[in-house]
Simulated scan of single mutants.
Amino acid sequence: MRTIDRVIVPLRVLLVLVFVGLLIAQLLSLPGQFSHMASEHPESGFIPWLLLTFSILEVLCFQVVIVCTWRLLSLVRSDRIFSEEAFAWVDGIVWAMVVAWVLLAGVSAYFVSVIYFTPELRDPGIPVVLTGMVLIGAVLVLTMVVMRALLRQATLLRTDLEDVI
């Protein structure tokens, strides 16, 4: 067994487990939870349905990242990670992360504004946590963009090296 397989095989098992867990959450847990919330608290209006839509879309973004990561692992295993084919999968990860971040920023901005303009909800904890999550999400997206640029440089260097040899 190659050394890289010692990492790829367990990572793939974990990716499958996470994907299945997210699928169960997306199809069963989240709709049940938010419909229960809507029936228990009818005064909350459309908020449970907004949260359900947000949650399902966020989970979908994570699933896209898992599928793209799986394909990148296939490229690593076949020693083709430094090829143009890898960029489509890396771009898929970047765009899924961007979409997830934009959704998070939008929902967070909405809830922070609701909390700010509702005197009985003026607990600073929730806006601080939401702002922190948005900032961490931005760091993750920008880190992935840098990683893509590094992959581009490594691919160019490998191509140049192969041309020399």
Rank of each mutant, 00 (worst) to 15 (best):
D5H: 14
D5Y: 09
R6P: 00
I8T: 09
P10G: 11
R12Y: 01
R12H: 08
V13I: 15
L14K: 03
L15R: 09
V18P: 01
V18T: 11
V18F: 08
F19K: 02
F19I: 03
V20G: 01
G21Y: 05
L23S: 13
I24A: 10
S29Q: 12
S29H: 12
L30P: 00
G32R: 10
G32T: 09
G32C: 01
Q33P: 00
F34L: 05
F34W: 12
S35M: 06
A38Q: 12
A38T: 06
H41S: 10
H41L: 09
P42N: 09
S44A: 13
F46A: 13
F46R: 09
P48E: 06
W49T: 07
L51T: 02
L51N: 14
L52G: 04
L52N: 05
T53G: 15
F54E: 11
S55E: 06
I56F: 04
L57I: 05
E58Q: 15
E58T: 12
V59A: 15
L60M: 12
C61M: 14
F62H: 09
F62Q: 08
I66C: 03
V67A: 15
V67P: 03
C68M: 15
C68V: 03
C68K: 13
T69E: 01
T69H: 01
W70T: 12
W70K: 03
R71P: 00
S74K: 14
L75I: 09
L75F: 08
S78N: 15
R80L: 11
S83W: 04
E84D: 15
E85Y: 02
E85L: 09
V90P: 00
D91A: 07
I93Q: 15
I93N: 09
V94L: 11
V94S: 02
A96Y: 03
V99K: 04
A100S: 14
L103Y: 02
L104S: 09
L104Q: 14
G106R: 06
G106P: 04
G106W: 05
V107S: 07
V107M: 15
S108V: 06
S108P: 05
F111R: 05
F111C: 04
F111E: 09
F111T: 06
I115T: 11
T118K: 04
E120V: 12
E120D: 13
D123C: 00
G125C: 00
P127M: 06
V128L: 14
V128H: 01
V129K: 09
V129D: 07
V129F: 11
L130M: 11
L130D: 07
L130C: 04
L130R: 05
T131E: 04
G132W: 03
M133I: 07
M133F: 09
L135K: 03
I136P: 00
I136F: 11
G137I: 02
G137K: 02
G137Q: 02
A138E: 01
V141H: 02
T143K: 12
T143N: 12
V146K: 11
V146Q: 10
M147D: 10
R148P: 04
R148M: 02
A149G: 03
L150K: 13
R152D: 13
T155H: 08
L156Y: 04
L157H: 07
R158H: 07
T159P: 00
D160S: 14
D160W: 08
D163W: 06
V164I: 15
V164Q: 10
I165F: 15
